[in-house]
Design a protein around this nucleic acid. Structure first.
Lengths: 144, 144
DNA sequence: TTACTTACTTATAATCATTATAAAATAAAA
DNA sequence: TTTTATTTTATAATGATTATAAGTAAGTAA
């Protein structure tokens, strides 16, 4: 995700307004390496700004996602997780418990083409699907 | 997705039963290169098997996903799309209209490691996020 | 074949994440 | 200031997915 200053410029250039709510949400995401859900963010931000509405939070998250600043992660647990870290990295997704963790391994794809099949490319992701250490040992228990 | 025969063996080896419903749903997905939603599949399969329940469809889809046979695609349009084609390929995701299309370009990653950070890896995916031709020209209209 | 066990399916209802609505508030420009 | 379009808020609505519990059928073994 780009800096608060750059997002400020982006909003203004679109004729938008840099509100206290947008700033609050941006700051909560900036440099955040977790994958929070809307509800998790809401609980945290309500402590700072009790009148913040879920609608505003969703609007702002959708806006950031539409700019490619954050990415939506559906891991099958019922709610969407948001990932502000969109630089190339490897994500490991457990097919059993739905955990999504960032790997420390270097991604195979360090850069994306600027254009492909008529799409203007902004970012890319690399996901590996499998079974996490915890679920693997659970399987072994069962199969014994 | 593996063949019906292989899935049959998988279910039986788990002590499960190969039911008419499972077969029906498997056949609808096998060699399917679209990204249908549960509802789309349901409407189609109800014509063949009018008593099929949505619950069974969801159960079967979740089961296939937990085996890595199909993949869940959240494109932000409110429902999950399912992709039975899990061999390496490139997916282009439009950040504006949420379209997800398979590219004909060869993926950069043809194979995945068998193991990473303790995860047993089953499959992987490569996604490019950006703006599709339709949305790009819409932007140009607006900015003129 | 027949009976038996367990897994599966169904219809229904419930849940819960997300979005729509409309009135009130506010940032930014004039 | 005043103005205006944008944004926010509280509330209600939507709609995808899941839980429940009773009934059904696949697989197995006599």
């Amino acid at each position: 995700m780009r800096t608060i200053e750059e997002l400020t410029a982006q909003v203004r250039s679109n004729g938008g307004k840099v509100t206290a709510q947008r700033l609050l949400i941006w700051q909560a995401l900036y440099n955040n390496r977790t994958h929070p859900t809307a509800e998790e963010l809401y609980q945290k931000l309500k402590q700072v700004s009790p009148t913040l509405s879920l609608t505003t939070l969703y609007n702002t998250l959708n806006e950031l996602a539409s700019w490619g600043e954050i990415r939506r992660i559906d891991n099958g647990d019922g709610s969407i997780h948001y990932d502000p870290f969109v630089e190339p990295h490897v994500e490991l997704v457990c097919l059993a418990c739905h955990k999504v963790v960032d790997s420390q391994s270097k991604p195979a794809l360090l850069s994306a083409p600027e254009e492909m099949d008529g799409f203007k490319i902004i970012s890319h992701s690399e996901q590996y699907y499998g079974y996490c250490p915890v679920c693997r040992s659970a399987f072994n228990q069962v199969n014994k």
